[in-house]
Amino acid sequence: MVGDFNHFPDDPEFADIIQKAEQAIENGVFPERISQGSSGSYFVKDPKGKIIGVFKPKSEEPYGHLNPKWTKYFHKLCCPCCFGRGCLLPNQGYLSEAAASLVDTKLGLGVVPKTKVVYLASETFHYSAIDRAKSRGKKYALEKVPKVGRRFHRVGLPPKVGSFQLFVEGYREADYWLRRFEAEPLPENIRKQLQSQFERLVVLDYVIRNTDRGNDNWLIKYEKPGEGAEDDEHKNCPDCCIKIAAIDNGLAFPFKHPDEWRAYPFHWAWLPQAKVAFSQETRDLVLSRLSDMNFVQDLCEDLYEMFKTDKGFDKAMFERQMSVMRGQVLNLTQALKDGKSPIQLVQMPRVVVERSRSGGQGRVVTLGNAFTQTFHCKRPFFSSW
Rank of each mutant, 00 (worst) to 15 (best):
V296P: 02
K106R: 13
R191Q: 13
I17C: 06
L102C: 04
L194Y: 05
F295C: 00
F125N: 00
Y94F: 01
Q297R: 07
R379P: 05
S279N: 03
L204G: 01
R209Q: 07
K76R: 07
A24C: 02
P258H: 01
V351M: 13
C300R: 05
G137V: 13
G312Q: 11
K139S: 09
F313H: 04
G362Y: 09
V2P: 02
R209A: 06
T309A: 14
D338F: 12
A121H: 06
K58C: 08
R33T: 08
K315R: 12
K308P: 09
R350P: 04
L142H: 08
F266G: 00
K48T: 11
R191D: 12
D16F: 11
F30I: 10
R85C: 15
G362A: 14
S35L: 15
A98R: 02
L290A: 01
H153V: 10
V148L: 13
F30M: 11
A252Q: 00
F198G: 05
D216C: 12
K160D: 13
R283E: 06
A252Y: 00
R154N: 06
F83M: 07
M322I: 04
D298I: 05
R363F: 06
E188R: 12
V111Y: 04
Q297M: 08
F5P: 01
T211G: 01
V365E: 12
